[in-house]
Amino acid sequence: MNVFLAQLLNGLDKGGAYALIALGLTLVFGTLGVVNFAHGALFMLGCFCAVTFRYLITLETVTVDPEKLSPWGAPVEVRTPLVQNWFGDFGAVLVDYSVPISILLAIPVMLIIGIAMERGIIKHFYKRTHAEQILVTFGLAIVLQEIVKSFFGANPVPQPIPTDLRGAADIGVWFGMAPHVLTYPWWRLLYLLFSALVIGGVFAFLQFTTFGMVVRAGMADRETVGLMGIDIDRRFTIVFGLAAVVAGVAGVMYTPLLAPNYHLGMDFLVLSFVVVVVGGMGSLPGAVAAGFLLGILQSFASMTEVKSLIPGIDQVIIYLVAVVILLVRPRGLMGRRGIMES
């Protein structure tokens, strides 16, 4: 039972990342009707927002202290981050919490990137075939990842978890179990909460604001909304930016769990497409449910017991699910009847 719970929890945080990426992907598909193969690259760009922020905030001054000597006799170099010089202890906290704080950087940056991408390229592809959309966004993804590679190199750049949030939460105790039976790293727990928060935020935004109402109306019938004198294209551009932001912040918070490298986006892209397809093209709740579901499935499949039963299942489970879903129920778990069902 405890093993079961532990695997469930393990799957949830990965599922959170899948759900966030897939949410943006399906939002873009539902509004613009564009199959965006560059969405994984947006996730990757989010990760590198965190890397950049950390790089900037740890810019440091090096002073040579002639008093102290290192063990081999050379003067010790004292490195102090500039922010620590400026703000004292508060600066140290800033450095420590660089990952969560970089969300503040990621939101405007991703919004701008998303809007620029939509206005610059995607806009011209509304009327083209899905194949051409796939191709142009695939090319865009290559360009983005190569730009990142030329700045940050090909090696993964690990990001630290803030000191206070390291270690694991003994959550078994919260449910009345003995201590140390069921533990879960704080950061993963935080990621889970964070993804739930973001998902809730997106849904609330679409459900309870006028802007969201217009967007939902546009998803259902774009032409009519346009005929009512609403500039739906502009709203959809912002939705694209929003999707980019969601992918970006998902990336930022994921960096301590997985050191980002430039091809991270491509690795997540295939997975998140599978998630979208399993959930149902254009269905937001479907994408979220499928994200968590597949995360959990993947985590169960990587259990030793399961692996010894069916070797290699952990590698292919997601694709297997996708194949089965596509063949048996092409509209996905929650897709509407008739959407992309052919």
Binding site: V35, H130, A131, I134, V270, F273, V274, V277, P311, G312, Q315, V316, Y319, L320, A322, V323, L326, L327, P330, M340, S342
Partner: peptide, 26 residues
């Protein structure tokens, strides 16, 4: 059995399965 983007994703899924299996079980 599927067309359009679903066909693309299906072929992609099969190819990725081959790729991951070639690295692990096979």
């Amino acid at each position: 059995r599927r067309t359009g983007i679903y066909f693309s994703i299906l072929t992609l899924a099969f190819a990725q399965m081959c790729y991951s299996l070639a690295y692990s079980v096979l």
